[in-house]
């Protein structure tokens, strides 16, 4: 299970594409075989000459007509492959894909403050963490975490240590997709007035998930740590997400 999700969320959409593409092919095969079965059901008695029956011919292999089967199979494959454009049109379009990266200036964000920016239509939390917050996050043993994986697109598959949740040299900046991994609400904790939950990080009011100062799930129904998008620092205070 953990393996299945480790490339999420970005890679998952790629897998979905592949899956849907295969779906068209499978439907083609299904339809074709279905039609072949029908092709064998042909009844060929001339009503002029006598009665006709629908089922008597099924058992007789001589009735199977390769031409009819081939024609049915061909038309079914064509009809099925036409499904793909109708499915694929709902995937993100070329314009949406092109907006995949965005740059932000972090200079105005003071220690202890956080900002929320938009990336791909999603909120991204960027917190300038205090030394205490970093310390608190580092102290937690990975084995005690509900989700032991870092969920970091920059370092996929690594354990959820605080170092793996940030970029080397920029540990004070925590950059995460601000969407609760439970059912997609936006957790509280970005402003001073917000409840930050039992672990001083974020708290999702929808179903009570508590995240710590490294954005890791500690308590509540959320299955995963908050996702970390791909990002790089262009300078000390300039960041590109995506």
């Amino acid at each position: 299970m953990a393996n299945l999700w480790q490339f999420a969320p970005l890679k998952f959409s790629t897998r979905l594409h592949a899956f849907l593409r295969n779906l068209g092919l499978k439907a083609a095969v299904l339809l074709a075989t279905g039609n072949m079965a029908c092709g064998t059901l042909l009844f060929d008695d001339d009503p002029l000459e006598g009665g006709r029956s629908m089922t008597a011919d099924v058992e007789d292999p001589n009735r199977r007509d390769i031409l009819v089967v081939a024609a049915s199979a061909f038309s079914a494959v064509g009809a099925a492959s036409l499904i793909w454009p109708f499915v694929h049109q709902m995937n993100p379009d070329a314009g949406a894909q092109a907006l995949a990266s965005a740059e932000f200036d972090l200079a105005p964000v003071q220690v202890g403050q956080a900002i929320t920016v938009m990336w791909r239509g999603k909120p991204v939390f960027i917190r300038h963490r205090t030394a205490e917050e970093i310390e608190a996050a580092k102290k937690v043993p990975v084995e005690d975490l509900p989700d032991p994986l870092s969920r970091n697109d920059n370092e996929p598959g690594t354990p959820a240590t605080d170092a793996n949740r940030t970029l080397e040299g920029h540990e004070k900046w925590l950059v995460m997709v601000g969407i609760c991994t439970h059912l997609g609400c936006i957790p509280k904790g970005q402003t001073l007035a917000d409840s930050k939950g039992d672990f001083g990080g974020w708290f999702c009011p929808c179903h009570g998930s508590h995240y710590d100062t490294a954005g890791r799930i500690r308590k509540g129904p959320a299955p995963r740590n908050l996702d970390i998008p791909p990002y790089t620092f262009l300078s000390d205070t300039k960041i590109r997400i995506g």
Binding site: W84, P85, F86, H88, Q89, N91, D93, A94, G95
Partner: peptide, 13 residues
């Protein structure tokens, strides 16, 4: 125009 240019297979549909 967006359908024709950017939607996947939009030009075809």
């Amino acid at each position: 125009d967006h359908i024709r240019r950017d939607v996947n297979y939009g030009w075809l549909l």
